[in-house]
């Protein structure tokens, strides 16, 4: 009896397995994933790259994905006006998971900075910016600037004490920029009033920076795939 049910169980399982294989094969053949999968199956990760410091780019990426997802949630609840910003951020805590989403967004941002700095250091120490990986490095530096811009514009959004300090320092540090023709238009809001700065920061934080970031991330990954990971020292 037990044997019988066991064999019908294994029949069911192998039947399910067969269906799974068929569906997978169909998706692979129709989507053109075939070549990609074939190539990927052959790939081996070199021994030296199994070292955890080679994981830091991936950790940065995971943290960025977490930031994107929680950011989508928060953007629906935040109101970018001087009068409402602080209040709307407090109100997020009243919504289910709201406080949790805010906290995760903030901690993931900290992790991103730590991970990206350590990743940069790893790539620098192993000399991986050298020929032929110049473009990988250049796109990385742009990603670094974008990441810090994300954090700075993010600081302005709550319109609290830290936002004032950030705005003040930014307009001092970038003081000369507002007089330069084209750049001045893009960064002119820094020297403007509180609402102007908030609108500018919010716009950068949720449109230009995510778009630019995604673009350079795709390019970064394409370059890594093209050249492979750098060899052992």
């Amino acid at each position: 009896m037990a044997e019988e049910s066991e064999s019908s169980m294994s029949k069911l399982l192998s039947g399910l397995g067969g269906i799974f294989t068929k569906v997978r094969d169909w998706i692979v053949s129709r989507s053109g994933l075939e070549d990609f999968m074939g190539e990927t199956k052959q790939k081996k990760v070199p021994k030296h790259a199994l070292n955890p410091v080679y994981c830091l780019g991936g950790v940065t990426f995971v943290a960025l994905v977490v930031l994107g997802l929680t950011g989508l949630y928060l953007a629906g609840l935040y109101r970018p006006t001087v009068l409402e910003a602080q209040q709307s951020i407090q109100q997020i805590s009243d919504v289910p998971f709201g406080f949790y989403m805010k906290s995760i967004h903030s901690w993931a941002a900290n992790l991103t900075i730590i991970a990206i700095l350590l990743h940069t250091l790893r790539v620098f120490i192993t000399g991986s910016y050298k020929k032929p990986r110049e473009f990988t490095w250049l796109s990385g530096v742009i990603l670094l600037v974008l990441t810090f811009s994300f954090v700075l514009t993010g600081y302005i959004l709550p319109m609290d004490e830290r936002a004032d300090v950030t705005r003040e320092t930014l307009s001092g540090v970038l003081g000369g920029v507002k007089d330069i023709p084209l750049l001045g238009d893009v960064f002119g809001w820094l020297a403007g009033g509180a609402q102007e700065a908030l609108t500018g920061a919010y716009w950068l934080h949720v449109t230009l920076l995510p778009l630019g970031g995604a673009l350079f991330l795709v390019f970064h990954f394409y370059m890594i795939r093209k050249h492979g990971i750098s060899g052992p020292l």
Binding site: T40, K43, K44, V45, P46, K47, L50, I104, A108, L111
Partner: peptide
Amino acid sequence: AEEAGRPFLPNHVVEEMGVIFLVTGIIM
């Protein structure tokens, strides 16, 4: 180095998934 390394699929991918869960877990 690659010869002495580890297959990308499935070994490395499985470990990467582990790292992803670990990282998101720590953040959470």
